[in-house]
Amino acid sequence: MSSIQLRLSVNGREHELELDSRVSLLDCLREHLGLTGTKKGCDQGACGACTVLLDGERVNSCLVLAAQCADAEVTTIEGLASSEAGRAMQKAFVRNDGLQCGYCTPGQVCSAVAMLAEYEAEVPSAVGEAGLTDAEIRERLAGNLCRCGAYNGILAAVREVAR
């Protein structure tokens, strides 16, 4: 085993860690820091359940090695839950039935909050419509799958917050 040492800030809290170099950011959060809000779906970058914010940008934490996160700032669903933007999105998901089993929801919420910030920063999408239309929201959230098929509720929730 080859180990690495790193300092990582998660939801504003500093951690000094010594980890096997193979540990993903996802496993680091769940297994080493006890932050089990972030979910492991496919573990291969195909489902988006593990979405977290890395230095403010949404990423699939299953495809990021923890070793690469030295001195980075990570925000998980636990961190978002105590922020205004995160709370608003969570409540909108509940109000609009944006979930059934709930497994993909932490990733959906992290992704949706980051998506609105990307939109504000004028990051384009393949749809290219003016304004945050339904087609834009769907495209910009395409990286998060929901096997229960709660997409219409998710769309309604995000539309409500974006408004």
């Binding site: 988006g48 699939n60 992704s111 384009p124 393949a126 998060n144």
Partner: peptide, 11 residues
């Protein structure tokens, strides 16, 4: 923009 997902493109 037609490839992958926003999460993957960010990385």
């Amino acid at each position: 923009l037609n490839g992958a997902s926003p999460q993957l493109r960010n990385r």
